[in-house]
Design a protein around this nucleic acid. Sequence first.
DNA 1: ATTTCTACCT
Length: 624
Amino acid sequence: MRRATSILNHAPTFCSVSAHSLVDEFTKFCYQRDLPRAMKAMEAMHRNRLSADAITYSELIKCCLVRGAVQQARLVHEHVFSNGYEPKTFLINTLINMYVKFGLLDEARNLFDEMPDRNVVSWTTMISAYSNSNLNHKALDFLILMLREGVRPNMYTYSSVLRACDGLLNLRQLHGSILKVGLESDVFVRSALIDTYSKLGEQHDALNVFNEMITGDLVVWNSIIGGFAQNSDGDETLHLYKRMKRADFVADQSTLTSVLRACTGLALLELGRQVHVHVLKYDQDLILNNALLDMYCKCGSLEDANLLFTRMMTEKDVISWSTMIAGLAQNGFSADALKLFEAMKSKGPKPNYITILGVLFACSHAGLVNDGWYYFQSMKEHFGIDPGREHYGCIIDLLGRAGKLDEAVKLIHEMNHEPDAVTWRILLGACRVHKNVDLAIYAAKEILKLDPADAGTYILLSNIYANSQKWEDVAEVRRKMRTRGVKKDPGCSWIEVSKQVHAFILGDNSHPRIEEIKRELSQLIQRLMRLGYVPDTNFVLQDLEGEQMEDSLQYHSEKLAIVFGLMSLPNQKTIHIRKNLRICGDCHIFAKLVSQLENRVIVIRDPIRYHHFRGGVCSCGDYW
DNA sequence: ATTTCTACCT
């Protein structure tokens, strides 16, 4: 302790006020949250070897916390320990908590180590301090030490320590102890359990814990809804949201953020717009508004995104800017993305790792080789950020698309990160654009080493071999697929029409209007062919909808979805479609021609890319 | 003394 050098001890000793009224006055100032006067009174009390009760000191500590007054807080600490008094456990706990809140974990720890009677609150405060600082190991160690000292954890302890749990084994053990002492029905413990299972991707267990709930609590609902949203299960997220509303709970910021994330994942623009209405009453919530911004970007409505971005009620943070920059780039507005980045540099927050990723993404998708290189080379110098694997990915993409395949390969081998499946897929994409079969085979094999369940890559490889009559290799690839149990999902496209989601799956005729749609599609293809459309049946180097037959080409799911959109949406309305697989070359040409012939804007989002078709051209510049 | 929500290369 710094008692020896305390300012308190050097203060002039002079006081004319009676002891009783001095303490009274101190108490009054503490409860009035008048920090300067309370501090003065405390000094006077110290000179007269007087002290107040623990509750009063804890009021003063609260006051220091609210004002961020660290120096004053330290003086209170010294005063409480001065004059030979040994403060009560309650007051030491308050001091420990104070240091934790100020982020001074070492000082909290010193107090904790020196206190004589550590109770459950002391232990829990330290555990929650460690888990909040991501010192997970320390938090779990403390739980063990606590048990060894014979202090029994309560619901506060468990809900704190659960956050620190980053392994399934630990979690199951903790869950077991919680059940044993009967604390699983506490809403804090329950939501922490749900959240922790969700963070480990164990949605099944999370849902079990949730379903055992008898009387509800909004946070528990938010935990399960957020868990599914974070695990990219949009359908289940929305399903639970409906259940929550049926149970008469009113969504708050957290719920709406998760629901928006589900809309983002499923590309449900109409539903997202409905949610926007509920967001309006939380226009000060930055997280929620960022989620809304991302939803508009990822659902392909840049008009809405731009509008929201310029009109946001709160100060925009680095996430708002990064979201908008990446959103513009992903949707093909690379020039606007770079312009926004320049604006950010002059009047926005400091760009971070992810911001730069969006910038490089914009360059690679617009073929801006020089700009991309410049930003890549200077990111360390200008923003202090070392290029990560993702940044290298963008540059490999940039080189590859520009036809510099050799340089792309060279960079893969030179970078100081291990290439992953994504890295090789980027190279494969470049091979597709530039029709380099040999390099494509190499890249495909590397992908399968790292991701042996990637059905699309097997099929692509098999098609390459088939095209060059290498039947033995074809058989080998097929055999590997069989033995590894890899199956390709059929192509599927989704479109939202009057709040209903319509799914079109290759080879599935269950849509009620399928016959009508197919008739319309045939007629449309006839008309396009008269304008020069030739179905592209070259499947080599294409990611395909399924086990491909030429005659099923005309019924690719996105074609059905486009026709259904033409049939059922008003004339001016943009047709928004989401696909589970990459769009094939034939459907890409088809969509371009339809956008011209029918004078419609069509937006198709595939798993990784956006295509805005307008007047016969696509925002991707045929470069995907 | 404790629980829930936002951006990321294919």
